[in-house]
Design a protein around this nucleic acid. Structure first.
Lengths: 349, 349
DNA sequence: AATAAATCCGTGCCCCTGCACGGATTTTGA
DNA sequence: TCAAAATCCGTGCAGGGGCACGGATTTATT
């Protein structure tokens, strides 16, 4: 079962390889009659280009720019980096090179600056993650102008659907938390504290959808109450403690804790100090400290956003376009992994 | 940042490409002095062979034989096939070809027959899954004699550790079920029926380990009891029903159901008919019917063995050896996915 | 010392595609 | 009718590595 090559096509159509090549790439300068004959041969013999030979022949470098928040500043953003490192060896033989552009996740302007820097380097493709809506729009505009293949991860910027997106279905993750609370809480009345740490549900679409998903699970049920809390200075354990104490005095029988982003680790010590580690605690993401609190029992469930896998998939998607010029679905959702003490080790690499 | 090529090495060591090639492949016929100089150059310039060019030059076909139970007869075995289909496009450019050998999962001799057929075809690598211990040993012996790279999935045959294995950590999956029962069951006494359908814990290591894992979770706790049940004619709903009725009369307060393999779908209708669908029901694997029972609420949790991913990883592992001659870890465990109604769609492709 | 043998190493072709150059043929224009 | 232009198409090289063949040099043999 030998492969069909350009040479075979040429022989079959009684022309030279060069002519076949011109037809294959629509480069014109071919007589209609000949073109038809070649197209026939392509059809008949079932020609598939040999990507290996093509890559070798082209011998060009594909620069993928990675525009994400600085992993040095926030442990969370180390994970996409891990994912990228994991897949790169597979592709560097194809001439794929990654150039990181890390911006400060607390300064919107930093995104714009880094984006400018990135564009100067003329990347062939872009992998981007940003929570700054307005600044992202500018970047996406420029991307659209330059027609650079781009994949967004983690956060969906829904300005247009022309960009590939890989992320988690936030709504479903909320609904999933709903069921986990439902089976875990034995009290008749399920009162759940929802914590937005250093973020607001109004500003962040992801968080909003998680909460909508959570309440949708309990839709039409009277044995359930959601209490939303926002804490900005989330790194101050004392402040969190007093906030919780206050909430406990105004609401009785709190039975669940839901942290809507990866910052569970800031809430957990406060709960431990208050002797509240028996509450059903659901959070997101496998940061080292989160995992520790999962192992010691303070946190019951972590929902894994799989940032490493998101980045991995995104790179693969871009390589698919650049190297193999395959098209694929524009939006993909990573699986919603439920992580508990017993299976956490599977998800850590 | 151009790649270092053989030509560069040749130039650096003042010899020709052919000589460098002989050194690279230990083909001898090179003077010691020259060899040292070339090795120095390799070290100094950091030469990495270009897999793309090599693949093109060798232009040979790699036949991977897939020796698994017939997917036509058992829905479960369709999934590994799906996984293989998913990754193959990525590798067929590298000349990788898959040849399936499906045996009858109810006749041990069928495995031996298909294995013979397989060996006749002289595969370059083998992906194998079998629950027949004795017959597998014969096949593995022959593999060892022929020194064919091989990866086992699903079931570990521990004759020797010379084979790669990809599978689930059965012990952990049992322990995981333990926690899920623990949080879900609100009764003080947790009595769990453990069903081995069409299999015995004595014969099947996987099942044994799942049960050991489950009881290890509750180790030292008095509020827990395990009742193991074996049913051979599991396709007979009436028989299952009478068995359960019998169990309910001899044991009170049954609160959990654990099916140790993928055959939950045969137990679920019996439970429904007996009005027992409120019990916490944990099973394995995303067969279509299992998923339906998860969606209608009879089954509460499914633990995904991820047969598709196992096969996918196995193919990748073999390709890594054949094409890229990379070595990698010999045993790998797939993640233990907890699947509920809310996230099941992520795990179905 | 002359020939045979052994050792070492360089050259050229192959794999397949992409692309530039230029040759060959046909068409256009005066 | 003949040169100029336009159109069409073949050849050759590059890209990196594998491998066979055979040339060149050194070593062994009588």
């Amino acid at each position: 079962m030998k492969r069909v090559t350009i040479k075979d096509l040429a022989q079959h159509a009684q022309v030279s390889r060069g002519t076949v090549d011109r037809v294959l790439h629509n480069r014109g300068h071919v007589a209609d009659e000949v073109r038809l004959k070649i197209n026939e041969a392509i059809e008949e013999l079932g020609y598939k280009p040999n990507i290996i030979a093509r890559t070798l022949a082209q011998n060009n470098e594909y620069k993928i720019a990675v525009l994400i928040p600085d992993p040095e500043a926030d442990e969370f953003w180390e994970q996409p980096n891990e994912g990228i490192k994991r897949v790169m060896p597979e592709f560097e033989d194809f001439g794929v090179v990654v150039e990181p552009f890390h911006f400060n996740n607390e300064e919107p302007k930093s995104l714009s600056d880094k984006a400018k820097e990135m564009f100067k380097r003329n990347p062939d493709a872009i992998l981007m993650a940003s929570e700054f809506y307005k600044e992202s729009l500018y970047v996406l505009d420029e991307i659209e102008r330059r027609k650079i293949p781009t994949t967004l991860i983690m956060t969906h910027i829904d300005s247009s659907n022309e960009f590939n997106y890989i992320g988690q279905d936030s709504f479903k993750s909320g609904a999933m938390a709903g069921r986990l609370f439902d089976v875990s809480i034995s009290q008749d009345m399920k009162r759940i504290l929802v914590f937005n740490l250093g973020a607001t549900s109004a500003n962040t679409l992801q968080i909003k959808n998680k909460i909508i998903g959570l309440s949708s699970y309990f839709d039409g049920r009277a044995d359930f109450e959601l209490i939303e809390v926002e804490i900005q200075n989330f790194k101050n354990t004392a402040a969190i403690k007093s906030k919780i104490t206050e909430l406990l005095s105004t609401h009785e029988d709190i039975s669940g804790i839901f942290v809507t982003n990866s910052r569970s680790k800031y809430l957990a010590p406060a709960l431990e100090e208050l002797g509240l580690d028996h509450l059903c605690f659901i959070g997101f993401d496998l940061l080292q400290d989160n995992v520790d609190y999962l192992l010691n029992g303070t946190i019951d469930f972590l929902i894994n956003q799989n940032p490493a896998k998101q980045a991995e998939w995104a790179i693969k998607k871009l390589v698919d376009q650049l190297v193999f010029n395959r098209k694929n679905k524009s939006t993909e959702y990573v699986p919603l992994d439920i992580v508990i003490k017993e299976n956490v080790s599977c998800y850590l690499h």
